[in-house]
Amino acid sequence: MSEYKISDNLAVSESGFLFMANSGESFTVNETGRFIINNLKENKSEEEILSLLTNEFDIDIDTAQRDFDEFLTLLRNLKLVEEL
């Protein structure tokens, strides 16, 4: 079960384009960013996401953890995620 909740208003397209229906803001994400957001939307936990990320991409767990934290900070700043 995820510790974070991505807003239901956020639509994520295949191309990495994000549209927030209740605020009218739009965003772009890169491939790894989209990967994390999609998994957060599916209510995966941080641990699960990190394991999926390191399976899919060529990266070690420590770096992945560090970058995940930084990405979460960005999402929080943009008010796209809530802590549960």
Binding site: S13, S15, G16, F17, F19, S26, T28
Partner: peptide
């Protein structure tokens, strides 16, 4: 349309 120009 906006997505296309923004992303691609």
């Amino acid at each position: 349309k906006f997505e296309d120009i923004t992303v691609n």
